[in-house]
Design a protein around this nucleic acid. Structure first.
Lengths: 202, 202
DNA sequence: GTCTATAAAGGGATAGAC
DNA sequence: GTCTATCCCTTTATAGAC
């Protein structure tokens, strides 16, 4: 841990990394203190409890990583361009944070009860303007009439799911890390085409 | 727990249910013993350790629930019919076991290191015959030339991912359990059409 | 095969000195 | 704000009686 950070930051960053890698329930407060280079009493001093620290980290991870994505969805870009930009930005973000999806999936299972009460999830599933755009263009006959709920689910499924099952994909296709990265890179164009094709009236 | 089961079964079934609901790391051996109506020493007598019990349960869950799906993928059905049957059977199976995907996602995160060594995952990602079929029909000009790796990932992403994020979908779309079930039911036809359309030469 | 009792380790959290 | 020492609880696993 770098010295030019305050203690709170050091704890926060050490815990973030450990939670992402080992999972919340397999990371002890002692692990966090050790990685942060402090003692375990300080975690309680700054964050009151491990669960409270987890809440803060979860919120931060969601907000930090979805900012750009929400901007795209809420922009005035034309529909097809918006889809292309969103897919590209989302996959780009996940490539830079390859454990994020798997971690979120684990958290949804772990914290089913409280997750919908955490306001951060607003950032994970924002569709209002985008949905309206889909409906409008469907009515105008520019695209095939499309149910926005299904379309949005299709889109985020194809974008994110491969990251969640990365170990399986790599193993079954005998891929190296580089090959997996290339596979994911291919999906930017692949998913965009798939989605746009589904919108075509034909 | 029913009395007409032997102790090993009672432990196995109690643990399966608890692991699915609370997660492996949030379930204690005491929880399992209590739910099974026995004492905690018997878990070690029959399964040696909690981790060993988990391995057995994971393997069983995968094998039991993928049997029919593999049969379809390995059958001699024509491609389009096979896709339709697979999507329908997969969604049907997951609707009957709504926590399965979320549990698997959590396990992939928890057990990244050993998961590819567990032979059960062969059952989760079997594509040989199906891949060949896609390649063959592409060469024959019956469908658009299609990369089977991407196609298979698209398919299982759209089928399974919505179950993993069920709490988010329900919350953001203000759905009841029944409405979510209906949404999922709609996806059988929706996903099939989406996949078939992507194969069309047009 | 099933039980009680307990060992041995690790967990989160806090008291109190500095 | 940071530390050491410690409390107290829960965990997994085992020993040994029945």
């Amino acid at each position: 841990m770098a010295k030019n950070k305050n203690t709170e930051q050091k704890i926060f960053e050490a815990a973030t990394q450990l939670f992402l890698e080992k999972g919340v329930d397999r990371t002890s407060v002692r692990d966090i203190a050790s990685k942060a280079g402090i003692n375990l009493a300080l975690m309680n001093y700054y964050f009151r409890s491990k669960e409270n620290l987890f809440d803060a980290i979860f919120t931060n991870l969601v907000k930090e990583n979805t900012k750009e994505l929400l901007k795209i969805l809420d922009s005035d870009l034309p529909l097809k361009e918006k889809i292309q930009k969103y897919v590209e930005a989302y996959i780009g973000m996940l490539s830079a944070n390859p454990l994020l999806v798997s971690f979120f999936m684990a958290i949804i299972h772990r914290s089913r009860e409280k997750i919908t009460k955490m306001t951060a999830i607003d950032h994970l599933y924002g569709t209002e303007k985008f949905s309206q755009q889909l409906v409008d263009e469907g009515k105008a006959g520019k695209i095939r009439k499309t149910d926005p709920s299904h379309f949005f689910v299709d889109m985020i499924s194809m974008i994110t799911f491969p990251f969640a099952i990365k170990p399986l994909i790599m193993d079954r296709n005998e891929m190296s890390e580089e090959e997996f990265a290339a596979f994911i890179e291919e999906r930017k164009e692949h998913i965009t085409q798939m989605l746009l094709k589904s919108l075509m009236p034909c």
